[in-house]
């Protein structure tokens, strides 16, 4: 783990998940698959919330709080983002991390 922290410091990436590495606010790299994605501000906000321990069911509330949109819009946006995250396998990284 110390080695991973050192590596993160060297590359300027943040390393809080076992396999997801954030680069600034724009990119996330899955270090196991080597796949990387450009993130919208909302996607970055929600992935970081997942990292901090949020549940996917809280996405709509988080969007409402952050962006001040009505709840119906937030629910739709949250579903769309979650679908994209799931298709890319991103939430799996957090599930694995939190497994006992």
């Amino acid at each position: 783990m110390a080695e991973k922290k050192k590596e993160a410091a060297r590359t300027g990436a943040s390393q809080r998940s076992d396999t997801l590495r954030f680069y600034g606010g724009s990119f996330v790299l899955n270090t196991a698959s080597g796949m990387f994605y450009r993130l919208s501000p909302a996607a970055e906000y929600l992935l970081r919330a997942l990292e901090a321990g949020a549940k996917t069911g809280q996405f709509a509330d988080l969007i409402t709080t952050r962006y001040g949109v009505d709840h119906a819009t937030a629910v739709r946006d949250a579903e769309l983002l979650l679908n994209q995250f799931t298709a890319l396998g991103l939430p799996d990284n957090f599930r694995t991390k939190r497994a006992p």
């Binding site: 396999t19 270090t31 196991a32 698959s33 080597g34 990387f36």
Partner: peptide
């Protein structure tokens, strides 16, 4: 271990990124 980031028309890797995949 790398993932090929770029491939030539022959399928040869022209760029790659190191991955750490237990699988």
């Amino acid at each position: 271990t790398i993932r090929k980031l770029l491939r030539t028309s022959h399928g040869k890797g022209f760029a790659g990124i190191v991955v750490e995949d237990p699988a």
